[in-house]
Simulated scan of single mutants.
Amino acid sequence: MIDHALWLFAMCLVLGSGVGLLAGMLGIGGGLVVVPALVWLLPRAGIDSELVMHIALATSLASIVLTSGSSARNHIKLGNVDFSIVKSLAPGVIIGGLGGSIIAELVPTELLPKIFAVIVLLLALQMLVSMRISGQRPLPGPVKTVCSGGVIGVVSSLAGIGGGSLTVPYLSWHGVEMRRAIGCASLSGALIAVAGMVGFITAGVGDEALPAMSIGYVYLPALVGIVMTSMVTTRYGAALVSRLPTMTLKKIFAVFLLVISTKMFLG
């Protein structure tokens, strides 16, 4: 089992390198790559197939806590975070993040990959057509904002992502300037990831089928491997933005996500 854990750790070092580069270049959430990659890697590391999707989602969210937290800190320093907006979204995204982990525990295991696949399919289509939503509508009242945050939180937790792909268009639709929308989304994403991670950890506590070195459904060898390299390569990905055709790469990546989501949906 130790050999399996070491092998997975090494694979996740490579995975984290790619995730960091893509996140830096394309501004995508790492969960879109981490979850399907772990779904493929975990069974090869001897993880029970009944646990694979839960571990993949939980470990992805745990990695996003650190990456989104780092991104949010940078945006705060740059003045890109409007705390009044984050405060209005926070109750909804936190409840939604927890709710997503509860739903994941309740639905049949074989349905989780299909739910993930549908979410990724929709996000990939949005990325492919490069939709830019903007408007001058004010943010809705507290109740509607909390409900919107709840939907974002549930969907993000079920997909193991930070929710930037949902939060940024939502804020842009309500007239929030793009830099502030991205900054607010990064902090909101960290809140979603923390809530979802806590939910998955709580749900997995006491499950004797989980592998050693797990905290609930979070598998530490995978988490440490991903974070160690992704936190480093993100800066290199950001440096490549001005040298590479980012929009072309984004469309290629969207097509890749379409293939992945179709494969996961069909099983």
Rank of each mutant, 00 (worst) to 15 (best):
V107A: 00
V107H: 01
V107P: 00
V107C: 01
V107D: 00
P108Y: 09
P108R: 05
P108S: 05
T109L: 05
E110H: 11
E110Y: 11
E110M: 04
L111R: 02
L111F: 11
L111W: 14
L111A: 07
L112H: 06
L112K: 07
L112E: 04
P113K: 06
P113T: 06
K114P: 00
K114M: 12
K114H: 07
K114G: 03
I115T: 03
I115S: 03
I115K: 02
I115E: 01
I115Y: 04
F116G: 03
F116D: 03
A117Y: 11
A117W: 11
A117G: 08
V118K: 00
V118T: 10
V118L: 13
V118Y: 05
V118E: 01
I119F: 08
I119W: 06
I119Q: 03
V120L: 15
V120T: 10
L121H: 03
L121S: 12
L121P: 01
L122I: 14
L122F: 15
L122K: 03
L123E: 12
L123N: 09
L123G: 14
L123V: 14
A124S: 14
A124T: 08
A124H: 07
A124V: 10
L125H: 03
L125T: 13
L125A: 14
Q126W: 03
Q126T: 13
Q126H: 12
Q126Y: 09
M127L: 15
M127Y: 09
M127G: 10
L128G: 06
L128Y: 13
V129I: 14
V129T: 12
V129L: 11
V129P: 01
S130R: 14
S130F: 00
M131V: 14
R132N: 15
R132E: 15
R132S: 13
R132C: 00
R132V: 10
I133F: 10
I133L: 15
I133V: 15
I133Q: 09
I133R: 10
S134F: 07
G135Y: 04
G135E: 12
Q136G: 11
Q136A: 12
Q136S: 14
Q136E: 14
Q136D: 15
Q136P: 00
